[in-house]
Amino acid sequence: MTADRTQHLDETKTNQKIKRLAYQIYENNFEEKEIILAGIDGQGYVFATLLEKYLNEISEIKISIAKLKFDKMSNFQPDIEVISEVDTFKNKTVILIDDVLNTGKTLAFCLRPFLSIPLQKLQVAVLVDRSHPKYPISADYVGYSLSTTLTEHVQVVLSGDEPKGVYLF
């Protein structure tokens, strides 16, 4: 995307982080009958599909996937569209998934559809945690913690033609 970015994780290391997160999710939820991975549209959803792949390789738990779509540029609570073949989230374990946790705003918005449903558990998984909290959101599963300044940007590339990995610019 830009020439002046630094790659912090290459494709191999990124996949290792995702696989490790899959093992952590399985270890903390091995007694569950079903886990729903709710990926935020974009790289968060791609990350969720990769977690689904690894979880299916290591576990017999039914893994379902959902996509959360909304206007990420909105300054106010946007409408969240949940795209899923799951008939109900009630009494199930849901893991909210995004590529980068920056201020927590995106994840805070995405909690709304699940707050009125009695869930077994609601957890959060992110590939990169930047540690700039503005909202009371923290991740239960973190692939890579990266201390950055507010002016720096983190880009996660998990699909497409660009080299896969985690970049800082």
Rank of each mutant, 00 (worst) to 15 (best):
E31Q: 13
A22C: 04
E27M: 09
T49Y: 07
E60W: 03
E52C: 06
K17I: 03
E52M: 11
G44R: 10
L21I: 09
K53Q: 12
L51N: 05
E60C: 05
I58M: 05
E52L: 03
E34C: 11
Q16A: 14
V46I: 14
G42M: 07
I61D: 11
A48T: 04
S59Q: 02
L51E: 05
G42Y: 07
D41Q: 15
T14K: 01
R20P: 00
I40S: 08
I35G: 05
K53W: 02
I35D: 05
K33N: 15
Q16V: 02
Y26D: 08
E57L: 08
I18G: 01
I35L: 14
I61Y: 11
L37W: 09
Q24Y: 13
A38Q: 10
T14E: 00
T49A: 04
L37R: 11
I35M: 06
Q24D: 13
N28F: 04
K53T: 14
Q16L: 13
K33A: 13
V46H: 11
N28Y: 06
I18H: 02
I25N: 01
E34Q: 15
G42L: 06
K19C: 06
I61M: 13
E57V: 02
K19L: 11
E31S: 15
A38E: 09
G42H: 12
L21Y: 06
I40Q: 08
N29A: 12
Y45P: 02
N29F: 14
L55F: 00
L51F: 09
E32V: 07
I58L: 13
Q43P: 00
Y45F: 15
E52P: 00
E27Q: 15
E27R: 12
L55N: 00
K53R: 14
K33L: 13
I40Y: 11
Y26L: 12
I25C: 03
G39V: 10
S59P: 02
V46L: 06
K53N: 10
Q43C: 07
L50F: 10
F30T: 06
G42I: 07
S59W: 01
Y54N: 05
E32R: 15
K19Y: 11
T49Q: 15
I35A: 08
Q16P: 00
L51M: 11
I18D: 01
V46S: 12
E52I: 00
N29M: 12
R20C: 00
E34D: 09
Y23V: 01
